[in-house]
Design a protein around this nucleic acid. Structure first.
Lengths: 195, 195
DNA sequence: ACTACATTGTAGTCGCTGTCTACTTTGTAG
DNA sequence: CTACAAAGTAGACAGCGACTACAATGTAGT
């Protein structure tokens, strides 16, 4: 059992991919995507500068993985919101609040999730996004069948709903709208969707 | 009248700031913000690598200027849409279409305009954004007074409207929604705002 | 238990970038 | 005409992403 440099860390990290994602997520939250450097993460974790390459062949691959994970986290946040008490209308309100809360508390992550980079091979991201979008679609279907939501193609309505929420989060994140307005803005949006 | 290196370009460019912005805008459209390098732009224009610094002290300053210009261009696009024929409802529809068209044809620019980078000194950007937002607010006021738009605080309603449009553009730009759906999505959104 | 091989780490290098500093050329106001 | 401000150049530096060659470790097959 030979140990490396300072005789404390094993040659193989064992969980480098996970460690990288965790460190990257923290860096993303605290300093933004532009400040994320693979070499910084490697130093922070204590591996060589080239080690991350085994798990993320390129910096963009790491950012994509972050975005993918972001959609999974968003999905679980929405799921939690749907577990609350109250009727469908209350659920809609809860989900709306939860979405915007998530997207404003993780502003840089939200940017990554909806970035418009030239990305030909982003199937993984789209699959990850399908989870929260599907969940929202189900809620819309339920709302329509109960008559609390406007009719029409549930896919379209769900998409417009998420778009509105993500747009509102963007306004706050870019400092165009003030965070204090968020409650009122959400209420205005809510009134448009719920009959 | 001494000339420089290849005896063709004068020592002073004369319009370097404008030239940089133009080249950057093209690069932004064709290759995305990540690929924008100050040194590339300098080479393309034919000045030294340090010359851009006189006009944009940092790369981020150039990106901010691009975003600022983006809001000005957006405002003029909206203005054009408002000059069309038809009543207020038609104007609302035209503005909605124009917004989403602008934000999808200039996807990377839209990202810059609504980015959530830690930006303490972004007053310039906010001032630039005030133009299109103010224009939208006027339209909302007109729509409300004519009874074609839902009531409530016009600032809030205008903000929700732009948020919805920007959100829809984000969905398309990130390939979550397909461009072909845009028409239907816009119609769904339109039906929510116009009584 | 041994051994071949895939996996996952290390070290070093390369070109490129953004930023900074010192210097030079040009425009311009007094 | 002359001093100074404005706007360019050249060179240096550290840091980064990406690539390569090599080393250590886990593991599957005999």
């Amino acid at each position: 059992m030979i140990r490396r440099v300072s005789d404390d860390r094993p040659y193989h990290h064992g969980n480098l991919r996970t460690a990288l994602l965790a460190a990257a997520e923290r860096g993303l939250r605290e300093r933004g995507a532009d400040e994320l450097a693979l070499r910084d993460l490697a130093r922070e974790i204590g591996v060589s500068h080239a080690a991350p390459r085994r798990h993320f062949p390129t910096r963009q691959a790491l950012l994509d993985a972050l975005a993918e994970d972001g959609f999974a986290r968003l999905d679980s946040v929405l799921l939690t919101a749907l577990e609350g008490t109250g009727g469908t209308a209350a659920h809609v309100r809860a989900v709306m609040t939860a979405y915007v809360r998530f997207a404003t508390e993780n502003a840089a992550l939200a940017d990554l999730m909806y970035t418009s980079k030239h990305r030909p091979g982003a199937e993984r991201l789209l699959e990850a996004a399908a989870a929260p979008f599907g969940r929202m679609r189900e809620l819309v279907l339920r709302g329509q069948s109960e008559g609390v939501l406007r009719g029409g193609d549930p896919d379209r309505l769900g998409m417009v709903l998420i778009a509105t929420l993500q747009g509102l989060a963007s306004m706050v994140n870019s400092a165009i709208a003030e965070p204090e307005q968020l409650g009122d803005l959400l209420e205005t949006a809510f009134a448009q969707f719920v009959l």
